[in-house]
Design a binder for these strands. Structure first.
Lengths: 233, 233
DNA sequence: AGTCTACTTTGATATTTCTCAATGCAGCCT
DNA sequence: AGGCTGCATTGAGAAATATCAAAGTAGACT
């Protein structure tokens, strides 16, 4: 893991981050240490239960937020993408609620939590930005409850793949960072079952995989899988 | 459905609501119409997709927030209890994300959304209270993702029953408002399967049911069901 | 090239869960 | 009492999913 002080003024994420809309002046006066962090695939950023001292913005790469159960199972609670804020568990929460693990080589931006807290009190724009992200996170979580609670394995997987690939449109460069096991832990399925369904999708020509590149060939048909016969969802 | 103007100053929910901590003066100047509403079991308060004009505080009774799928299934996204805020879908969201249905005869307090919005800008205490509720909702949603994604039917049901009954400690007066179908739609199971597991729990003496009264007889043993052999969770 | 290692695939079987159909039960109405 | 209605239960069989075990594959390292 390598670390260096960040130059927020020229950050490529600036307008996607929670500091979007701030003036250069405000940005210079953030009053906190902001660090760039580069980590490798598999690195654990923090553990569930750890005291939370930092929040992070995902600049490049992928992160999974995982909860481990007493029964040995692991559940991926959230997958993060470019621009997402994480590690910020709420105003009064001082412990991380998940374990955060890099899915690929990843660049982060690290913010001090207590400074961020003060900042959000001082600058309404920052507060609103954080609030908006929480709102989105809640909405996503509720959508996932619906997926897990009322769809079958193939439908869940189909929905996920279509959403994934529409979020990362046609970028051949980015290899698919999730293992079959990751997919299983995200969708509540066994690794083997995921593998079988993927194979079936490939057999039907809905999906193509080469090296680490995953390509959705027929999003429309995949979606009918996801929602029953011919329904939009 | 009956409606009347509310007397916030003497509201029994005052200190549990998002207006907790406000002075009498502030409370008088809310600057919005606040209505008490009484509704009967099964009443739909709003539909998914409706334009959101009001938020509600649940004062007495029970509410389920439901999403309906194209495939015919319904998923209960959230169960609300005494003191919960709902119908407030976020700062910029103008449509309800769920259908809200009364599980029993219920008293609500209805707030105008745009006024609430302004209020939260003016009064930090209100804003923080709303934020805190969102935070809790997100945490609950994530816990449910874990339940749905990595536990078996009997474990999910056991966890739910223990939590339910610890939230409503030993009040014989309140009948259990959920049908087997509700339980199924909440836990992602078929009605029949819920029924069978409940029967098994009763057979083992973990649970007792008489008329509408549901009693958890052995929370500890029920929890070992929920988490595998002897584990806390 | 050879060997490791981690990930994936496949098959066989066991378990879990759903579906369908029938019946039971209790409250409510007349 | 009789009948109606909505919910709960039970059983039997089918479908979905997990588990266990064995091979297959590809990349990383020497």
């Amino acid at each position: 893991m390598s670390t260096s002080h960040s130059d927020c003024l020229h950050c490529s994420m600036r307008e996607r981050s929670i500091f979007a809309g701030l003036s250069n002046e405000d940005l210079c006066q953030l009053g906190m240490d902001v660090h760039d962090i580069h980590i490798r695939t598999g690195t654990v950023i923090y553990h569930e239960g750890d005291t939370a001292s930092y929040a992070y913005t995902l600049r490049q790469g992928g992160i999974k937020l995982v909860k481990n159960l007493a029964n040995g199972h692991a559940q991926i609670v959230r997958l993060l993408r470019h621009g997402d804020l994480f590690g910020f568990e709420g105003l009064r929460n001082d412990r991380h609620r998940h374990t955060a693990i890099a899915l690929s080589d990843t660049d982060l931006c690290r913010l001090e939590l207590h400074a961020l807290d003060q900042l959000s009190q001082r600058l309404p724009a920052v507060r609103e930005a954080i609030f908006a992200r929480w709102q989105q996170a809640l909405q996503d979580a509720e959508d996932r409850i619906v997926e897990l609670g009322s769809k079958k394995a193939d439908a869940r997987l189909a929905t996920f793949l279509v959403q994934w690939c529409s979020a990362y449109p046609a970028q051949r460069e980015a290899p698919f960072p999730l293992t079959r096991q990751d997919l299983g832990e995200f969708l509540g399925l066994s690794t083997e079952h995921v593998s079988r369904i993927m194979a079936e999708f490939k057999r039907q020509g809905l999906l193509h995989e080469h090296k680490n590149q995953l390509e959705v060939r027929d999003p429309r048909k995949l979606l009918t899988y996801a929602c029953g016969e011919g329904n939009a969802c």
